[in-house]
Write a protein that binds this DNA or RNA. Structure first.
Lengths: 141, 141
DNA sequence: GTAATATATTTAGCCAGCTAAATATTATTC
DNA sequence: GAATAATATTTAGCTGGCTAAATATATTAC
């Protein structure tokens, strides 16, 4: 009995994952970025000049992924790279004006997504949902 | 106030998405398939001989994605393709023995994933969580 | 029966994500 | 100081996912 519930939850999370990604993808294309890039930019909005390794940790992805994302974002003029003066192995990533200007529009997209996701879910339910999702998050680590 | 809760929920779902994908990915590599392919195979385990368009609808993805997935699964010997005798536009997809043998192992992986996800979440909470996730799912359509 | 339209799939070329292996530079060890 | 080990990034090649455009076949309209 609990088994079918568990199965439903896994399947739901799976479908929500891919549907959210599709949604973001469409939405962010209006801003000329690709889904995933907004999370890299988010780290830079908190403070730029970080290394690619730091971006790896923040995005929880592997170095080659960051190399590719950074290359794409650089080619499209959202960021630029500078080699560290003290350690020539390290590349530091900075926002261009074009990259800085994206912060507000992306925040708006996030809010729109939140409202869409949580439509007709009550405030008390949202609190509980947050707790349960946090639990799932930590279970996955 | 509710706003930060909403934001937390979106972020949690985002992190759970990518972490689940990473987890599945590692787990399924032991079975020599890639994450996403298990959902295509699942449709075939329900009954094979379906067209690529039907796989598109089931996976909620675009035709080129199915073309690529089918090509990969065929090259690795899990499925084979036959052209429809009445309509030469249509390719019908069938499981090989190797593909059929994967059903049980994948089910086991799914169960393991469910247990991991829902560790220390109570039965009543799971019921509620399922309802809320179903709501989110329908909000996304 | 021929022309136009609809359907199913493929190709080319992007993206995020991965692994394995190569490269470059710095730090350590002897 | 030279050899070794650790760190940061890149390259090559794979995956699922996408869009736009091409191809092949079937259906419909005239």
């Amino acid at each position: 009995m609990t088994d079918t519930v568990d199965c439903d939850i896994r399947q739901s999370l799976d479908r929500i994952s891919s549907q959210m990604r599709r949604d973001y993808s469409e939405s962010l294309r209006e801003l000329n970025i690709y889904v995933g890039q907004e999370n890299l930019l988010y780290r830079l909005w908190l403070g730029d000049g970080v290394t690619q390794m730091q971006l790896c940790e923040h995005l929880k992805c592997e170095p080659p992924t960051v190399t590719n994302m950074v290359k794409s974002l650089e080619q499209n003029g959202f960021i630029y790279r500078e080699r560290d003066t003290h350690d020539a192995r390290i590349m530091r990533i900075f926002l261009t004006d074009k990259g800085k200007e994206l912060e507000k529009p992306v925040e708006i997209k996030w809010k729109q997504q939140q409202e869409k996701l949580l439509d007709s879910i009550l405030p008390e339910e949202r609190l509980l949902l947050r707790r349960l999702l946090k639990q799932i998050e930590s279970n996955l680590l």
